[in-house]
Design a protein around this nucleic acid. Sequence first.
RNA 1: GCCCCCGUAGCUCAGUGGACAGAGCAGCGGACUUCUAAUCCGCCGGUCGGAGGUUCGAAUCCUUCCGGGGGUGCCA
Length: 553
Amino acid sequence: MIRDEIRILVKQALTNAQAAGDIPQFAAPEVTIEHPQRAEHGDFSANLPLRIQGLAKMKAIEVAEALRNHVPNHTAISEITVAPPGFLNLYLDPNWVTDQIATIIDSGSDYAATQRFAGQRAQIEYVSANPTGPVHVGNGRGAAIGSTLANVMRSAGYEIAEEYYVNDAGTQVSIFGRTLYARYQQLFGRDVDIPENGYPGEYMISIAKAVKEAHGDTFLRSENEGADPEFAQIGIGIQIENIRNDLKLMGVEYDEWFSERSLMTENGSYDAIIRLLRDQNFVAERDGAVWFTSTEVGESKDNVLIRSDGAPTYYATDIAYHYDKFIIRNFDRVIDIWGADHQGHVSRVKAGVTAVGGEPNKLDILLYQLVTLKRQGKVVILSKRAGEIITLRDLIDEVGADATRFFFLSPSANQAMDFDLDLATKQSDENPVYYVQYAHARIAGIIAKAREEGKSSDSANASLLSHEAEQTLIRKLLQLPEVLETVVDDLAPHHLAHYAQELAQAFHTFYTQCRVINDDESLTKARLLLLEAARVVLARTLTLMGISTPDRM
RNA sequence: GCCCCCGUAGCUCAGUGGACAGAGCAGCGGACUUCUAAUCCGCCGGUCGGAGGUUCGAAUCCUUCCGGGGGUGCCA
């Protein structure tokens, strides 16, 4: 990308200036190139002179002058200026800019893809909500972040496995099973109550009905007997299918639904990590429970692996799961995306991973802050225990999948988020996602009309595109590679949502100021060419976000 | 108590070492005989929570205080 080329030019300028004796010798720091806020400061700027003025024992402005004289020629750069207190400002050549349109169109749906991480396998685990109930709104945020990050990382060359960890073992599942069995018995006329800490939601009745439909009274036992152990798993299976369908509404589909139970059966990772921890004397028995003495590896406290009732904790199976990710499947990189309510779990999972032979620096745990729903300015309480919960499916029904994803994607992950249902529904015309999609629809409309009129971009002369709005739009198109790099390096997909709005804005401004189909045949051709490039980049941006690209609205 | 996240325009948020701090919404004023007005243009709006410090330069880094959220289970 052009920013990288400019970075090399500036670095070379320093080397040249030092070789020429205009700047003293010293080791060059990392060169950073940025976009100045103000257009009169150029397309790119380097603050290197300010950074090295101390090393050079020169005034920054003099360093800048010396550097400017030694920047190698490059077809993309038409002018370099020095600005106080010591910036080097670089201006793109308008003809080089218009030449890039063809490159963008040629790349098509691969535009801004790179091979930066080619050959590396990364696993991204996200949502992983308990299969004991519906996915709620907060899980939707994880879904939007995770699937977008997966898309963008794939475009950077990673081979990505998207995965949902199914907590189909443990305490919550047995409570689920007991609740479901009570509902199941009720369907056969028995007067039983759901357990005290059970799941009161209506959906449990639906699952019970589904079991009854598929299996009849097969699972009905005598009154004072508990349910068949398999019964809960059948219910869990049904609920997983519901979750899969709900997430699919948002365009989220996984490569793997990984069963927690399997770790303790055919997978074997659970036994493996217990053995590994024992072999290293990281295990102690206290109060009838088995503990990981994680204080020995720097944790603030020890953690239980096996409860006094013999059941493994979530923590133990999570270590086993990560053992599977790192040791069995040997991923080069693992990214877990969790809600901030799991924040206390981060450090001890890393400690566990380290203790069983994984490399904690290959594990990134991306936390997103919690989502609160607001309706009529009031917070809607979200709880599986409360009678009325708003599920992800409800939200998508109300708001639509595209707006849901865009809303979840817009704020940075570590910003707590209010999802204003009134804004997202009643005032949906003002929703930014429509602004972006409308730009795409407008482009599609013009291209279709041009085709009807027999006009095309064949043998267009792009250098005619000298209008300020045209140049601004093309320069914005050229920024997508930079945005994607930031998204991957910072694990911050929200930048894509902001870029999408900036891109749409550049287009709408162009649309207003520059009529595409006009009396000047060669200008029409050139602008149609620009439209094709804009469509490529806009579609690419929306597709990476998992948002549709309507041709009309 | 301790740990994590946040505090930027009336509201929702970008910006996390650079130039005069930005956008959307809201408010005010303009622009449709034109390829979609779900649009565009202009105006208004800020002690970047407070105070110290580091730096040529701080919304950004450090310290401390205040305020909001989350965590601190033999739940997940």
